[in-house]
Design a protein around this nucleic acid. Sequence first.
DNA 1: GTGCTGACACAGG
DNA 2: ACCTGTGCCAGCA
Length: 112
Amino acid sequence: MPTVTVADGAPRGELDGFASRVLDVVDAIPAGRVMSYGDIAEYLGEGGPRQVGRVMALWGGGVAWWRVIHADGTPAPGHERAALARYRNEGTPLRSAESPVRVNMRLARWPD
DNA sequence: GTGCTGACACAGG
DNA sequence: ACCTGTGCCAGCA
């Protein structure tokens, strides 16, 4: 069988290697710190910000999704409220607690 | 194969 | 702060 193609679909309940690695990294982010989608892709040395975003959209529910945000510090679309609650809870440095909620990337970005 | 879409990033306006 | 266009990488009709 030429060209593998990961047996069409593939999603089922299992995550492919990339997704698994993305979730691993997210799991390693300490409380009160964050990483941007692009940071994770770069840290992994594979895929891109959009791929990381897709992984989070599909399987991010099982990890600390609120620690993965946009490069400008704004949290994932549709989850700003929940994210803000988490930030207050774990002391994540904020630049703005009002909408648009923004994490202070200079202080919260991880690793560093 | 072709084209649209998306939890992105970045530069402009 | 918001919107637009361009670049980027995959998934899906």
